[in-house]
Computed example of a mutant assay.
Amino acid sequence: MGKKLESSFKNMVLVLFLVTLVSSAAVGVVNSLTSGLIEKVKIEKQVQAIRAVVPAFDNDPMTEKQIVEVDGGKLEFYPAKANGQLVGTAIKTFTNNGFSGLVELMVGFTPDGNVYNYSVLSHKETPGLGSKMDAWFVKGAKGDITGKTPGSQGLQVSKDGGDVDAITAATISSRAFLDAVNRAAKALAESAK
């Protein structure tokens, strides 16, 4: 057996330094191996969201992306075209007013400004309450927003005088969801001017 190191401050610092060096190198290697895959999955999720929120198209909206700065953040516009004609616009939008902060959506609009569909990209809302936004506002559901035009007033929950039913026991999350939709609709209307 080899000689045992003496338990001194110098030796403890040296061992701690070596453990930290090896650990950080391992984390760096894992990060470099997975970063490309993570980015690829993120892009694919975004492409699927675009396909889900606008009518069928034959162009590549990702290559025609436009960025618009609004309210201290950036909205991403993805024009969807069929045979060279605009059939809809997918907008990656956000709100910071969720019960648990940031909510990101992909909202699809028809050329006349009606909501075609939406997809929730990310949120940290309460499971079983605010997290129901994934299915609450879809076509045929109680809070259905499809086919509605936000207009100058924007969409509002019925509690605030609007005509959209809020998620039961999750009014804050519902307001936040509609805030993100309204932000996208307003930016789309302003870009058309």
Results as ranks from 00 to 15, higher is better:
residue 140 G to I: 01
residue 43 I to C: 00
residue 10 K to I: 13
residue 82 A to S: 15
residue 70 V to G: 02
residue 46 Q to A: 05
residue 192 A to C: 03
residue 59 N to Q: 03
residue 189 A to Q: 14
residue 7 S to Y: 15
residue 18 L to M: 15
residue 11 N to Q: 13
residue 76 E to Q: 12
residue 183 R to A: 05
residue 74 K to R: 12
residue 122 S to L: 04
residue 27 V to Y: 12
residue 112 D to W: 06
residue 59 N to M: 08
residue 126 T to H: 04
residue 177 F to P: 00
residue 113 G to V: 08
residue 37 L to W: 11
residue 145 I to E: 01
residue 147 G to N: 09
residue 20 T to V: 11
residue 20 T to N: 11
residue 68 V to P: 00
residue 168 T to K: 01
residue 82 A to F: 12
residue 91 I to F: 01
residue 169 A to Q: 12
residue 56 A to S: 10
residue 138 V to T: 15
residue 99 F to C: 02
residue 132 K to A: 13
residue 148 K to Q: 09
residue 85 Q to D: 14
residue 22 V to I: 15
residue 121 L to M: 14
residue 38 I to G: 02
residue 27 V to T: 12
residue 71 D to K: 05
residue 36 G to E: 09
residue 157 V to Q: 02
residue 150 P to L: 11
residue 25 A to K: 02
residue 13 V to W: 09
residue 4 K to H: 14
residue 177 F to R: 01
residue 124 K to T: 09
residue 119 S to C: 11
residue 146 T to D: 10
residue 39 E to T: 06
residue 156 Q to Y: 07
residue 11 N to T: 14
residue 59 N to V: 07
residue 146 T to S: 14
residue 137 F to H: 02
residue 153 Q to V: 11
residue 69 E to M: 11
residue 118 Y to Q: 01
residue 104 E to D: 08
residue 32 S to Y: 15
residue 54 V to K: 03
residue 169 A to Y: 08
residue 189 A to V: 11
residue 118 Y to L: 02
residue 176 A to Q: 09
residue 107 V to E: 02
residue 4 K to S: 15
residue 41 V to S: 13
residue 116 Y to D: 10
residue 116 Y to S: 13
residue 33 L to I: 15
residue 57 F to T: 06
residue 54 V to F: 05
residue 5 L to T: 14
residue 91 I to N: 02
residue 42 K to N: 10
residue 191 S to I: 04
residue 6 E to I: 15
residue 185 A to Y: 07
residue 65 K to G: 03
residue 68 V to L: 06
residue 141 A to I: 07
residue 141 A to F: 02
residue 98 G to K: 00
residue 117 N to E: 11
residue 2 G to F: 13
residue 187 A to G: 06
residue 149 T to P: 00
residue 16 L to I: 13
residue 88 G to K: 07
residue 146 T to L: 12
residue 55 P to K: 07
residue 192 A to V: 08
residue 104 E to H: 03
residue 186 K to C: 08
residue 87 V to G: 04
residue 128 G to W: 07
residue 162 G to A: 06
residue 71 D to L: 05
residue 111 P to A: 04
residue 164 V to R: 00
residue 109 F to V: 09
residue 40 K to M: 13
residue 188 L to H: 04
residue 20 T to W: 06
residue 120 V to Q: 01
residue 86 L to N: 06
residue 32 S to T: 15
residue 60 D to R: 11
